[in-house]
Simulated assay, not measured.
Amino acid sequence: MAPMNYLAHLLLSPPDAAFRVGNLLPDLVHLPEQEKFTGRYREGIEMHRRIDAFTDAHPVTRRSRERLWPTYRRFSGIIVDIVYDHCLIERWRAYHPCSLSDFLDEVRSGLPPLEADLPETTYRHIRSITQWAGDYATLEGVSDAMKRVGSRLRRPVDFSGLYPELERHRQGFLDDFDCFFPQLLAATGIDAQAVQSAS
């Protein structure tokens, strides 16, 4: 699977391990498998869909994608997903009281009781997300992630020229994120103060 905005989905979840996992599952398993999950998993899956629907249709995220046209138009959605996780890390203290590493440690600590509920590869992938999501702290990390995506495609795509484009639009992406993310919180019914005080 391609790397997506996993960090945002984790942050925009209550501190409940099954809900958090559910909020990742649509990017990790096919729809028929998703339908097998109930309870808090199901609530997380539904939250993921609301987040994605709002994000994909928003004019600000479209503006972010257009910054990468025409060279990366086909992949601009994936790139912006990852870039927004980079922006979230840049703004992390505005949205969560703990450090990013402590937050990811806490997410990871809640996973073992869920292992039996998940396909083995999915469980391993989710654990790995909590270990490398912090790599998006730099635009080099974003670029490297896309290079890995490109190398795994059926027809490989060269993303070696992406980093200069990301650097050129760094401030624009941050401005877009600062406009968009509070609106996403409101649209998903999440109180920013609640997110900030979550532990």
Results as ranks from 00 to 15, higher is better:
residue 66 E to S: 05
residue 99 S to Y: 04
residue 69 W to R: 09
residue 159 F to N: 00
residue 194 A to G: 11
residue 53 A to N: 10
residue 76 S to V: 01
residue 195 V to G: 01
residue 48 H to V: 08
residue 60 V to G: 11
residue 162 L to G: 01
residue 78 I to G: 07
residue 11 L to S: 06
residue 106 E to C: 07
residue 154 R to L: 14
residue 125 H to W: 06
residue 18 A to P: 00
residue 74 R to V: 06
residue 155 R to D: 15
residue 52 D to C: 14
residue 46 E to N: 12
residue 161 G to H: 04
residue 2 A to K: 03
residue 24 L to I: 09
residue 25 L to D: 13
residue 52 D to H: 13
residue 87 C to A: 14
residue 111 L to P: 02
residue 174 L to V: 02
residue 98 C to H: 12
residue 33 E to W: 04
residue 18 A to H: 04
residue 38 T to I: 02
residue 38 T to D: 10
residue 93 R to L: 08
residue 122 T to R: 10
residue 91 R to F: 06
residue 107 V to K: 00
residue 197 S to L: 11
residue 168 R to P: 07
residue 35 E to M: 07
residue 6 Y to L: 01
residue 159 F to D: 00
residue 192 A to M: 14
residue 195 V to A: 15
residue 110 G to D: 04
residue 149 V to F: 04
residue 37 F to T: 03
residue 151 S to R: 15
residue 98 C to Q: 14
residue 165 E to C: 06
residue 25 L to E: 05
residue 120 E to P: 09
residue 164 P to K: 07
residue 128 S to Y: 10
residue 78 I to N: 09
residue 147 K to L: 05
residue 162 L to H: 01
residue 192 A to P: 15
residue 24 L to C: 13
residue 72 Y to L: 07
residue 48 H to D: 14
residue 189 G to K: 06
residue 169 H to A: 15
residue 153 L to C: 09
residue 82 I to F: 00
residue 141 G to M: 01
residue 146 M to Y: 00
residue 80 V to F: 02
residue 184 L to W: 05
residue 101 S to V: 02
residue 130 T to D: 10
residue 192 A to E: 15
residue 66 E to H: 06
residue 135 D to W: 02
residue 23 N to S: 13
residue 131 Q to M: 14
residue 124 R to I: 03
residue 5 N to C: 06
residue 54 F to I: 08
residue 44 G to C: 12
residue 29 V to W: 12
residue 70 P to H: 11
residue 173 F to P: 00
residue 126 I to M: 08
residue 180 F to L: 15
residue 33 E to F: 04
residue 22 G to D: 13
